[in-house]
Design a protein around this nucleic acid. Structure first.
Length: 213
DNA sequence: ACCCAGGGTCATA
DNA sequence: TATGACCATGGG
C-alpha cells in the first residue's frame, strides 16, 4: 500500500478538513508555535486571549514584555517558553520584512530560514511553510510516524528529513493535497487511535499501536 | 489519580 | 548521533 492510496482512503472516509483553522497566515504561524505538544483546544483559548487583548500581531508580540505575553497565552501550557519563542519568531518575521518578503523566497530557502528561528523545529517550520505560505511540503508528526510504521511502510525511528523525503518522493508536489493529507492524518489519529487499543472502525483497518507506544 | 496533547532545546555521553 | 530532563495547562 502506497502513501497516495492511503490518502485516498482517508479522504473518502473523512471528506475535506479545511485546514489550517485560522483566519490569517499570521495566525497560522502563532498557532503552529502554540500547539507544540499541546491540545488544540488550549491553543484556541490562548489565541482568543491574544485577540481580546488586541495583541495578535507581529508588532504587538515583538513589543510586549515576555512576562506579559506569557500571562496572555497561559492556557496553551509551557507559557514562559512559548512566550520566548513567539517573541523570537515575531522579531525575525519583522526583520525579514513581513509576509511578502518571506513569500518571495523559494520553498527550500524559506524552509531553512524559518527552521533557523529559535523555538521552531522541523514540524513547526513545515506547518508554517505549508499552511501559511501554501508551499508543497509534507508535515511529519507523531501520528505519521505511528501510523505508517504500524503499516510497515517506514521505520518510525528514522529522522524527520528521511521520512519527509519518503513521502514527498511518492506524492505529487501539490500544496492542496499535502495540506489535506496532514489534516486527515491528524483527524484519523484523534478519532481512531485514542481510547481504543484496537481501532474497530479504522478506515485504514490497522491497529495503530497507540497503547504500545 | 493518571495519561497525554497537532514539539523543541539543551546538557550529557 | 542519540538519549533524557525539562517545559505546564486542561480534558478524558
Amino acid at each position: 500500500m502506497d502513501p497516495l492510496t492511503i490518502y485516498q482512503r482517508l479522504s473518502e472516509h473523512f471528506g475535506p478538513r479545511n485546514w489550517w483553522p485560522a483566519d490569517t497566515a499570521f495566525e497560522v504561524m502563532v498557532g503552529a508555535i502554540l500547539t507544540q505538544n499541546t491540545a488544540w483546544i488550549n491553543v484556541v483559548k490562548a489565541m482568543d486571549s491574544l485577540k481580546a487583548a488586541d495583541c495578535l500581531s507581529a508588532e504587538s508580540i515583538d513589543t510586549l514584555p515576555q512576562d506579559t505575553l506569557a500571562r496572555l497565552i497561559r492556557p496553551s501550557g509551557y507559557y514562559n517558553m512559548k512566550a520566548k519563542r513567539l517573541k523570537a519568531y515575531c522579531s525575525w518575521y519583522l526583520q525579514q520584512g513581513g509576509f511578502d518578503s518571506i513569500n518571495a523566497m523559494p520553498t527550500d530557502a524559506m524552509r531553512e530560514t524559518i527552521l533557523s528561528v529559535y523555538g521552531v523545529g522541523p514540524e513547526t517550520a513545515d506547518d508554517i511553510v505549508l499552511y501559511a505560505f501554501n508551499r508543497p511540503v509534507f508535515v511529519i508528526d507523531s501520528y505519521t510516524r505511528r501510523i505508517f510504521s504500524r503499516l510497515g511502510l517506514v521505520d518510525g525511528s528514522k529522522t524527520y528529513e528521511e521520512l519527509r523525503q519518503y513521502f514527498e518522493s511518492r506524492l505529487p508536489a501539490e500544496p492542496a493535497l499535502l495540506n489535506e493529507y496532514h489534516a486527515l492524518i491528524v483527524i484519523h489519529g484523534k478519532n481512531y487511535c485514542r481510547k481504543r487499543p484496537l481501532c474497530d472502525q479504522c478506515p485504514l483497518a490497522i491497529d495503530c499501536g497507540y497503547f504500545q507506544g
